[in-house]
Amino acid sequence: MAYVNPQGEFSRDTNYITTRITADGADGYPVEPGRYRLVVARACPWANRTIIVRRLLGLEDVLSIGFCGPTHDERSWTFDLDPGGVDPVLKIARIQDAYFKRVSDYPKGITVPAIVDVPTGAVVTNDFAQMTLDFSTEWTAYHRDGAPQLYPEHLRDEIDEVARRIYTEVNNGVYRCGFAGSQDAYDKAYDRLFTALDWLTERLAAQRYLVGDTITEADVRLFTTLARFDPVYHGHFKCNRSKLAEMPVLWAYARDLFQTPGFGDTIDFVQIKQHYYMVHTDINPTRVVPKGPDLANWLTPHGREALGGRPFGEGTPPGPTREGERVPAGHCAG
């Protein structure tokens, strides 16, 4: 849920349902295999984080996943990819129904990702930032053998600090550009975004990953924005100082992650473009979806191995994507 203030500045409502699913069940929702369903849309960068982390940690057998389609109306994301347009587990056509089960007159935006309590059909949380941290810290009893440490205790302060700047300046920064309602608001948003991207370039020039020598939560959070930069944000959101493919350090870093199991195999470029260009009719009233850019270059050598680092630390890569959870052929690079 977002709005544009009288100065034309985009602002995101971050007042989410902050109930947590924890090992001790302090909020009334204990971690429990099979009890919850993660509802996502491949198009959404915030939901994409949860898809990646769930896969890296190997939570597929304990936390089922439901995929909404790439477009939605003013009411809700819908399960139009499923037979009959109904989620096979929750038996609903709109994620809105699960929100109303929790709060009958839920007044805010119906967002993904959301975790639903299957027995009651009610949303437990849509707090996407806390969700992935809890996957790393509260669901540990169900991590796969060889699961990486995405939020290691000794690096949490630094991860939090880096992630905070990535969120305000990059993840949300592209939206601040795209939905600016005045020239002045846009100019300021543009400058803020590229100042942050220059900072990230400097940080990543000499180290393979954002914090430490392994992939962490911070990398997941940056990756989902970078993956959408050239297909959407560069043109649609006017973030056009340069394409990602014209920023050598960030482009190599993004390709490195894309080619890492659990990252690129979650990216559906077709759905990503359909979502932004068809839903944001105030920005793109024709709803015409661009054919480009060419995606083959995502698979070109990146050379980042020369910086050292171990993607999964002492852990191992996740196995192949599960049947029924794979990005459709032709929707990804390669």
Rank of each mutant, 00 (worst) to 15 (best):
A2W: 15
P6L: 07
Q7G: 13
S11V: 15
R12D: 13
A26N: 13
G28I: 05
G34L: 12
R37G: 03
L38Q: 02
V39R: 02
V39G: 01
W46L: 06
T50Q: 07
I52L: 06
R55A: 13
R55F: 14
L56Q: 03
L57H: 04
E60H: 13
T71H: 02
D73S: 09
D73C: 04
R75V: 14
S76T: 13
T78V: 14
T78H: 15
L81Q: 11
L81V: 12
P83A: 10
V89T: 11
I92L: 11
I95H: 00
Q96C: 10
D97Y: 11
A98D: 05
Y99K: 05
F100S: 10
V103P: 09
Y106K: 00
P107A: 11
K108C: 05
K108D: 11
I110Q: 07
A114T: 10
V118W: 04
V118C: 07
T120C: 08
G121W: 01
T125S: 14
D127C: 00
F128I: 02
T132M: 12
T132K: 04
D134H: 06
D134Y: 01
T137G: 12
E138D: 05
W139N: 03
W139E: 02
T140S: 15
H143W: 04
R144S: 08
G146I: 06
Q149A: 15
Q149K: 13
Q149Y: 09
L155C: 07
R156M: 11
R156S: 11
I159R: 08
D160S: 15
A163D: 14
A163V: 10
R164Y: 12
R164T: 14
Y167W: 13
N172R: 12
C177V: 03
A180S: 13
G181Y: 06
G181F: 10
A185V: 10
Y186K: 04
K188P: 00
K188T: 13
A189D: 02
Y190K: 14
L200M: 10
E202A: 14
E202D: 13
A205K: 15
D213L: 06
D213S: 14
T214A: 13
T214E: 09
T214P: 00
I215G: 00
R221G: 00
T225I: 03
L226M: 15
Y233N: 06
H236S: 06
F237G: 01
N240A: 08
L244V: 03
A245I: 08
M247E: 09
P248T: 03
L250S: 04
A252T: 11
D256L: 09
T260P: 02
T260R: 00
G264E: 07
G264T: 07
T266N: 15
D268V: 07
I272H: 00
K273M: 12
K273C: 08
K273D: 07
Y276M: 06
H280Q: 04
T281N: 12
T281M: 10
I283R: 14
P285D: 09
R287S: 12
V289K: 07
G292R: 01
L295R: 06
T300L: 14
E305A: 15
E305W: 08
E305N: 12
G313Y: 09
G313H: 08
G315W: 02
G315F: 01
P318E: 03
P318A: 05
G319M: 06
E323S: 15
E323P: 10
R326I: 11
A329V: 15
G330M: 09
H331L: 03
